[in-house]
């Protein structure tokens, strides 16, 4: 059997989504207080959860590719459009600092009963309509400074994937070590 299985229907969407939502809520990432506390550098839950997840998933993909049951060419690897990729990140970062969430976490917050999460999600829809309204004139910006198709950090740095994984693990461990006191800071009390 080779992977990926190429499922695209409602069942695989629901299964992956239910697991995603469950973990985000139990990990504390549906809470605007905790999400913005990361951006105030008062709580490091978001960084630790995200970076650990990236490393575990990237490590798993590496092993599956090494075992020959999955091929990098069959996996969706996004392409960099330097200004658009960076600007989108900037707007979503500012949006989280102001509004408490990002698109996925607003759904989690809303599902736990947060009215601000529902309002944030409504804002997302308005933001998409606004984008569609000025899409045609800003098209040159969106496609500017395009990187190579599906480029990885390994391609960029000329390093094998295991070396990139080792460097990223070092970065994650280093940040955790230097922030481990504020990660458990009593100054922050966010319930869930």
């Amino acid at each position: 059997m080779t992977f990926p299985m190429g499922l695209a229907g409602p069942i695989s969407g629901l299964v992956c989504g239910v697991l995603f939502g469950y973990v985000l809520q139990r990990g504390g990432l549906g809470n605007g207080c905790r999400l913005t506390a990361q951006l105030r550098l008062q709580d490091w839950t978001v960084f630790n959860v995200m970076f650990t997840a990236i490393l575990v998933s990237a490590g798993g993909l590496y092993v599956l590719e090494l075992a020959g049951v999955m091929h990098a060419a069959d996996i969706f690897i996004p392409t960099t459009f330097l200004w658009a990729t960076l600007l989108g990140g900037v707007l979503i970062g500012v949006g989280m600092a102001i509004g408490g969430y990002c698109p996925g976490t607003s759904v989690v917050g809303a599902a736990a009963g947060r009215i601000d999460g529902i309002v944030f999600f409504a804002g997302l829809i308005i933001g998409v309509v606004a984008f569609a309204g000025i899409y045609t004139p800003i098209t040159p910006l969106l496609g500017a400074a395009a990187g190579p198709q599906a480029q990885t950090l390994g391609d960029l740095l000329g390093l094998p994937a295991w070396a990139v994984l080792a460097i990223l693990t070092g970065v994650a461990a280093g940040v955790w070590w230097f922030t481990r006191r504020s990660a458990a800071s009593p100054a922050i009390t966010c319930a869930d």
């Binding site: 960076l86 309002v119 944030f120 409504a122 804002g123 606004a130 899409y135």
Partner: peptide, 27 residues
């Protein structure tokens, strides 16, 4: 409510600029 709405608008616009959000692109 105003902050949540403003943040959502920025985020929804931004996610279209980068063709992905914290989940799809960041994670």
């Amino acid at each position: 409510l105003a902050l949540a709405l403003a943040g959502g608008i920025l985020s929804g616009f931004g996610a279209r600029v980068s063709a992905g959000c914290t989940s799809g692109l960041g994670l």
